[in-house]
Write a protein that binds this DNA or RNA. Structure first.
Length: 224
DNA sequence: TGCCAGGCCGGGT
DNA sequence: ACCCGGCATGGC
């Protein structure tokens, strides 16, 4: 019954936090900006997203109604630096339609539902997948859902904490069952996974200087 | 120069 | 169920 839970993820969190310090994610001045950024950053570097957000901010469009009223062609031009600008304009408008037409443009209204309901609502939007939905819920809504990304997957799998074949849901369950259900912790931890991933998982996988190197299984990182 | 980045969708087998 | 291509810009 009281099954013993190994504290590996908690230990990894401590190490990453010690090494990298608080990440203060998500960059953005308002929850709405965070929400927009979550769509724009899909498979894209944050640097490019910043340009797009700057354009929107300079145009005074970082508000639900203002952005939703903008013609799609103009939206496309403004977010162009973020890449995939035609798809993303469509995806943003799909999201804005739900936000504006179902919740009167109020993020608070959208996030005051049960987490499961809010998540389902986001996932039903064309162009919003699990990672984008969770990023919006956690970073814009402060709701406790863990954001899984490719770095998270690699780190956990290479340490043997989960199989490489694990899908998004399995990873999320595995992580959430081992950590206290705490939005601030999830927030920091996801950002730390990205930090360690960028530095150590890109070219040289989990090299000796990786703060998690000592937690690797005997024989080193597992291969895919 | 080529490859990649904080995904997601649709079509083919 | 699986695999794969499309989507696009900017940085290294």
């Amino acid at each position: 019954m009281s099954q013993e839970r190994s504290p590996q993820l908690q230990q990894a969190f401590e190490r990453l936090l010690t090494r990298f310090g608080p990440q203060r994610w998500w960059p953005g001045d308002s929850p709405f900006e965070v929400m927009v950024g979550a769509v724009l950053v899909q498979n894209t570097s944050w640097k490019n997203v910043e340009r797009a957000l700057d354009n929107l901010r300079d145009a005074g469009l970082l508000a639900p109604r203002e952005l939703y009223d903008l013609p799609q062609a103009e939206l496309e031009e403004l977010i162009r630096p973020a890449g995939y600008y035609r798809v993303k304009a469509r995806r943003l408008r799909n999201l804005l339609a739900v936000l504006c037409e179902r919740h009167g443009g109020s993020l608070d209204a959208m996030f005051s539902q049960d987490l499961a309901d809010a998540r389902a609502e986001l996932l039903a939007i064309h162009g919003i997948g699990p990672e984008t939905a969770d990023a919006i819920l956690l970073y814009a809504g402060k709701l406790p859902t863990f954001v899984v990304d490719s770095y998270t997957h690699r780190v956990l799998a290479r340490h043997g904490w989960i199989g490489f074949e694990a899908d998004y849901h399995q990873l999320q369950e595995r992580i959430e069952e081992e950590l206290p259900r705490d939005a601030a912790l999830y927030n920091e931890y996801h950002a730390l996974f990205v930090a360690v991933g960028k530095q150590f998982c890109r070219k040289v996988p989990l090299c000796a200087e990786c703060p998690l190197a000592e937690m690797l299984p005997p024989g080193g990182p597992l291969e895919e």
